[in-house]
């Protein structure tokens, strides 16, 4: 019975996204049943839509910059958190992790107030990056905390004992061993940034990110099938990234010689 329920729940989870390809290949502009026949013209339209290309490039740039910066900050925070004791650590980590439990609209509003009303900045992709780094860092820290936690501190001491400096030890021992965590943190941060809407909606200037562009399309029903086609592609890309992440995690486990106890994230 529990099994039947779980499968029913999975169907509930998948129901909406299964509609994506259905309407992406549907030859009609109204997103409703009955269907009107098969077409690939929405995908062709995607191919020629310059605004969409620009939005996609913007989003990729933002996601790349945000994920790299968030992971760099995440490495520093997670290492300090796991390896060192210093006064005020709990408070410092609390502030760094705070965006995890803050409604995104609050982050968006507060940064908007500072950027426009106080600093008088022009909104641009960089303001979006700045905000995305803030919300991605806690995820990176959470993942890297686990990496540093499972890294035996005596491995680093052994390398220092064998004549290497702290810097060399980090490069030769620490970095290779936490690499799966770094890759996972990069992928998660990248995905979060790529999909984030409300902050980008508040902080973007004249260059929309992809979600902001999609939002504008949702108001023009004629373009919605194009959005469906785009969504289908995004779904395939996301699932590919996920499979890559899962594969990377399993490889990390195998390397460390640990049995797979399950638990993505």
């Amino acid at each position: 019975m529990l099994r039947a329920y779980t499968i029913a729940f999975l169907i509930f989870l998948y129901a909406p996204i299964l509609l994506l390809p259905v309407f992406a290949f549907n030859d009609g502009t109204v997103i409703a049943f009955p269907l009107d026949g098969f077409t690939t013209k929405w995908f062709e339209e995607l191919w020629t839509n310059a605004e969409l290309h620009a939005a996609l490039v913007n989003s990729l740039l933002v996601a790349c910059a945000s994920s790299v910066l968030a992971v760099l900050l995440g490495i520093a925070a997670a290492r300090a958190n796991i390896r060192y004791k210093f006064p005020g650590k709990t408070a410092a980590m609390g502030l760094i992790m705070l965006p995890l439990v803050l409604p995104e609209i609050i982050v968006a509003v507060s940064l908007l107030v500072v950027a426009i009303r106080i600093l008088g900045l022009d909104l641009s992709l960089w303001t979006v990056v700045a905000a995305h780094v803030l919300i991605c860092t806690p995820f990176a820290v959470a993942i890297l905390n686990a990496s540093f936690q499972s890294l035996d501190a005596s491995l680093e001491e052994a390398a220092i004992d064998l004549g290497f400096t702290r810097g060399e030890t980090f490069r030769l021992i620490t970095l290779p061993l936490i690499m799966p965590g770094i890759v996972a943190a990069l992928l998660i941060s990248f995905t979060i940034s790529l999909d984030e809407f409300i902050i980008a909606f508040f902080l973007t200037g004249s260059d929309p990110t992809l979600p902001v562009y999609i939002w504008s399309l949702l108001r023009f029903p004629r373009l919605i099938p194009v959005v469906m086609a785009l969504g289908t592609i995004l779904m395939v890309v996301s699932i590919s990234i996920l499979i890559l992440a899962e594969w990377n995690r399993r490889r990390g486990l195998r390397r460390a010689g640990v049995a797979d106890k399950g638990g993505f994230l």
Binding site: E157, A158, L162, L177, A256
Partner: peptide
């Protein structure tokens, strides 16, 4: 620092580099 001393250590966990 440890890297400048003529001592070497066998750690309790052995600290064998797994990679």
């Amino acid at each position: 620092p440890p890297n400048k001393r003529p001592t070497n250590m066998v750690f309790q966990s052995y600290a064998i580099f797994p990679h």
